[in-house]
């Protein structure tokens, strides 16, 4: 029982990341009809927002180390600590949550510039060309990040207070041995909030209604005198922000490096296809489903029966789903069926 619960939790937080990326991907599919291979790079940019914030907050000055008295020793001390003492230390500790505030405007800007500058010109081109140009863009973004931050993963720790583990087992009345890292629980909650936020936004606001109308029939909406283009730009910006936030919050779980985006991109594309192109619910459901399946497949009991299954389970599921249900789990008719 414990083992099963822990695997479900494991799967849920990984699934949360898949679902967030796939949600953004599906938004751009559904609204703009664009296959964005640079979406993984946006996730990576988000993670590097957290890295930048941490580096910004810990800009240091060389000061004399008072604790060593035998000789003159120097140590690096962040300016924030020098100026504000303990308050500065706390701020540095909270670098990752703070960078959420920083990431939102940055990612919005990146998204809008990208849509207006490049994606806009590719609405009428074939999907193959869209894939190719965004693939090129992903390489460029990735290499720029490598130029500035190097090739090695950069550890970006979560705040101290949540660095431990939560006694999940005790809280649920199960064994005390069942513990789970706080930050992963936070990630799960965070992704749930974002997902519900996006759904609520699309469902209960006028803006969202127009966007949904535009998704199903773009021409009629624009004939009604509504500037669909502008709204779609904003939707692209939102998709970028979602990918970026997914990245920011993932930074403490997986130290960011420049090619983390590519690794997630392939998986999240599979997630989108399994969920069904153009279906937001499908993307979220498939994200969590595949996350959980993957964590079950990596249990030792399963691996001894089917060696290597943990490596290929996601792709295997994708192949089976595509062959049995050609439109994915919840795909709509007529989306991406050229």
């Amino acid at each position: 029982m414990d083992a099963i619960l822990i695997q479900i939790l494991n799967g849920l937080d990984k699934g949360g990341a898949y679902a967030l990326i796939a949600l953004g991907l599906t938004l751009t599919f559904g609204t703009l009809g664009v296959v964005n291979f640079a979406h993984g790079a946006l996730f990576m940019l988000g993670a590097f927002c957290a890295v930048s914030m941490q580096q910004l907050l810990t800009i240091s000055k060389k000061v004399k180390d008072e604790s060593i008295t035998f000789f003159d020793a120097y140590k690096e001390q962040p300016y924030l600590e020098i100026w504000w003492g303990d308050a500065g230390t706390v701020i540095i500790d909270y670098a990752v949550p703070i960078s959420i505030l920083f990431a939102i405007p940055v990612m919005l800007l990146v998204g809008v510039v990208m849509e207006r500058g490049l994606i806009k010109h590719f609405y009428k081109r074939t999907h193959a060309e869209q894939i190719l140009v965004t693939f090129g863009l992903a390489i460029v973004i990735q290499e720029i990040i490598r130029t500035f931050y190097g090739a090695n993963p950069i550890p970006t720790p979560a705040p101290d207070i949540v660095s431990g583990s939560a006694a999940v087992g005790a809280a649920l009345g199960l064994s005390d041995a069942l513990v789970y890292p706080w930050w992963r629980l936070i990630y799960l909650a965070f992704s749930a909030v974002i997902i519900f936020g996006v759904f609520a936004f699309l469902k209960y606001t006028t803006f969202g209604m127009v966007v949904r109308a535009g998704m199903s029939d773009r021409e009629t909406v624009s004939l009604l005198g509504i500037n669909v283009e502008r709204r779609f730009t904003i939707v692209f910006g939102i998709a970028t922000i979602v990918a970026g936030l997914a990245g920011v919050m993932y930074a403490p779980i997986l130290p960011p490096d420049y090619h983390m985006g590519m690794d997630f991109l392939v998986l999240s594309f599979v997630v989108v296809v399994v969920g069904g192109m153009g279906s937001l619910e499908g993307a979220v459901a498939a994200g969590f489903l595949l996350g959980i399946l993957q964590s079950f497949a990596s249990m030792n009991e399963v691996k001894t029966i089917l060696p290597g299954i943990d490596q290929i389970i996601i792709y295997l599921v994708a192949v089976v789903v595509l062959l049995v249900r050609p439109r994915g789990l919840m795909g709509r008719e007529g989306v991406m069926e050229d």
């Binding site: 894939i131 594309f269 296809v273 290929i312 792709y315 595509l322 062959l323």
Partner: peptide, 21 residues
């Protein structure tokens, strides 16, 4: 059995499977 982007994803899935295995 599938075309368009679904075909691309299927080939990608098989390639990643072979690579991981």
């Amino acid at each position: 059995r599938r075309s368009g982007i679904y075909f691309s994803i299927l080939t990608l899935a098989f390639a990643q499977m072979s690579y991981s295995l």
